[in-house]
Design a protein around this nucleic acid. Structure first.
Length: 550
RNA sequence: GGCCCCGUGGUCAAGCGGUUAAGACAUCGCCCUUUCACGGCGGAGACAUGGGUUCGAUUCCCGUCGGGGUCACCA
């Protein structure tokens, strides 16, 4: 009995690895092309950190004319959730990230290196596991979870490094005959990697993002095939990224410390190792401590949150790119209208440590993005958002399409567009007074400022509407008239004059304007009043003044 | 606890042996001949700490402290 017999006993039907080596040949790509992937496990809703990784991976592959594929890592059946895959694909698509190959909607697959779902690659992993067993580089382990637990307890009590390695790896010393016998007796087992590493030796690794790092070699005999026949992450990673010819593994930096293991796996399997780029996570400040954005505690960890809030996808994209490469910000300033595609993202310029998520900054990016949209685009986006999250707003927008586009056109389209909408959920509040339907329901008081006596207010409104208001006036004439009106009622026509002689006047033209503004909108802060009046129209203006005078 | 990574203003960050230590967001003030927003100008605000190395350290080395990651038949 030898290793080969043992391997045949364990995996009698597994194909020889040459079959797969031939089936998945080298990719024919230009020099420097990056082949990378996003490889989520469908265990929960899509996390913003996942989107972040996806954006980065997609971008660098695109820039180098490489390949970006989506591989589903569903080897943990216990943690898998329903529709997990669909959600991931939908979210990525939402943000404009399409894979070149891999898993697509409705379990469809595209590409010559599949299957792209690990649960469907069981045979492949078993072939490679068999290959290792044949060479004595992997072995069946019969220790029960309880035994493993005991070993760990002993190690902890003795204050030595925990794990299945060296003298503690008792199954690695079984003879082939012993192993075969146990298997024939029906004892349950898993397959472990027989690590050739020594803990007292160092390996050096150059990470694309983290730079040079030094670790002790791996000496743990980690599990490669679990009791259910599926591989562990480590083994699947080595086999898949070899077969799929990944050039760059871009993943979260929680994986950094398993690089020694992974490198070892690649080496023992005779594979060329990929380059690794370990991305620092997006963090959150929690009572003075930094921690990863958590799915459970932080609503903003879910990508859905941003759609619900109505933060445009482009804004989220740009913000994330900003975290990835701080040069993005400067590039954007210099190229305000270029598509993101033109930006050159550099993995090696990414930050080594995790950035705190900054919602204020995101919203700032967002309002710039929105300010560049045309009024039609704002209308469309706002409507799309409202259709899902605000029935009343949706109804109003639908019933007043042309009018609404005019409303969104106020102070838009010029060189210094207004920037007061940072998310679609702001829209209703910011334009409500432009719609009678909403304005009528507004029960707040008219909060006049400097000029606040009913009699004086009514005098201003009355005089304005009967003597001065003319919808045909241009802006200059319109404002000149407000000055004249102010003069007629003995208010200062110029603010400067008022400030120079405060004792001579009760109020100034600005205060008069405020009266008109409040009567019209019930607000003291609004966009340009001339434009508002143009959009509102004569009838509504007269009606609102009348109401205000009651 | 072992191992590994990181530590520039409130936040994101340039700089990598000699700089008045950039810029963005936030904040404050002024200006933009009506508010707000936009825009412009300006202010305040930082190299965690102690030792080295050096003519000179934010930059290099060591310690300390602080933060993060990782030590599964989870990914």
């Amino acid at each position: 009995m030898d290793y080969k017999d043992l391997a045949n006993l364990i995996f009698p039907n597994a194909k020889d690895i040459t079959y797969y080596e031939e089936k998945y040949p080298e990719r024919n790509l230009p020099e420097g092309a990056i082949v990378t992937r996003y490889a989520p496990s469908p265990t929960g809703f899509m996390h913003i950190g996942g989107l972040y990784q996806g954006i980065i991976a997609k971008k660098v592959s695109e820039q180098t004319k490489g390949v970006f594929f989506l591989r589903v890592e569903d080897t943990d059946q216990k943690r898998e959730i329903e529709n997990g895959v669909t959600e991931i694909i939908n979210s990525l698509e939402d943000y404009g990230i399409q894979a070149d190959e891999g898993v697509f909607q409705n379990d469809q697959e595209k590409g010559n290196y599949g299957p792209y779902k690990q649960s469907q690659r069981k045979e492949i992993y078993q072939s490679y596991a068999k290959y290792l067993i044949e060479q004595g580089k992997a072995y069946p382990c019969f220790c029960s979870p309880e035994e493993i637990e005991q070993i760990r307890n002993k190690q902890e009590a003795a204050k030595i490094r925990p794990g299945y390695y060296g003298v503690w790896a008792k199954c690695r010393n079984n003879t082939v005959e012993q192993m075969a016998e146990k298997i024939k007796n029906g004892e349950s087992y898993i397959i472990r990697f027989k690590s050739p590493g020594r803990e007292d030796k160092k390996i050096r690794h150059k990470d694309v993002i983290k730079g040079n790092v030094e670790f002790p070699e791996n000496d743990q005999d980690i599990v490669i095939i679990k009791a259910d026949g599926l591989p562990t992450y480590h083994f699947a990673h080595a086999v898949d990224d070899h077969l799929m010819h990944t050039t760059h593994v871009i993943r979260g930096d929680e994986w950094l410390s398993s690089v020694p293991l992974h490198l070892q796996l690649f080496q023992v399997l005779g594979f060329k190792a990929p380059k690794y780029a370990h991305i620092a996570p997006i963090m959150k400040n929690d009572n003075g401590n930094k921690r990863k954005l958590s799915k459970r505690k932080d609503p903003e960890a879910a990508v859905n949150y941003y759609s619900e809030q109505g933060i445009p996808k482009e804004a989220v994209n740009e913000y994330l790119l900003n975290i990835a490469n701080s040069t993005f910000e400067n590039w954007r300033r210099a190229n305000p209208d270029k598509p993101i595609k033109d930006f050159d993202l550099q993995l090696n310029k990414m930050s080594v440590s995790g950035a705190l998520f900054d919602m204020v900054k995101l919203l700032d990016v967002s309002k710039i993005v929105i300010s560049k949209m045309t009024s039609e685009q704002v209308y469309q986006n706002a409507l799309e958002w409202a259709n899902k999250y605000d029935e009343q707003l949706a109804k109003i927008l639908k019933e007043n399409k042309e009018y609404s586009i005019k409303v969104f056109g106020i102070e838009r389209g010029n060189k210094k567009p207004r920037k007061d909408i940072s998310k679609w959920s702001d829209v209703k509040e910011s334009i409500s007074y432009m719609y009678d339907e909403l304005f009528e329901k507004d029960n707040t008081e008219y909060l006049y400022q400097v000029i606040n006596q009913k009699e004086k207010i009514n005098k201003i409104l009355e005089l304005y509407i009967t003597k001065y208001y003319n919808p045909q006036d241009d802006k200059q004439t319109w404002f000149d008239k407000i000055k004249e009106l102010s003069g007629e009622l003995s208010y200062a026509k110029e603010v400067k004059e008022f400030k120079a002689n405060p004792e001579k006047y009760e109020a100034h033209v600005g205060d008069v304007s405020t009266v008109l503004r409040v009567a019209l909108t019930k607000r003291t802060n609004t966009p340009d009043m001339y434009e508002i009046m143009q959009v509102l129209g004569k009838d509504v203006i007269e009606q609102r003044f009348k109401k205000a005078m009651q």
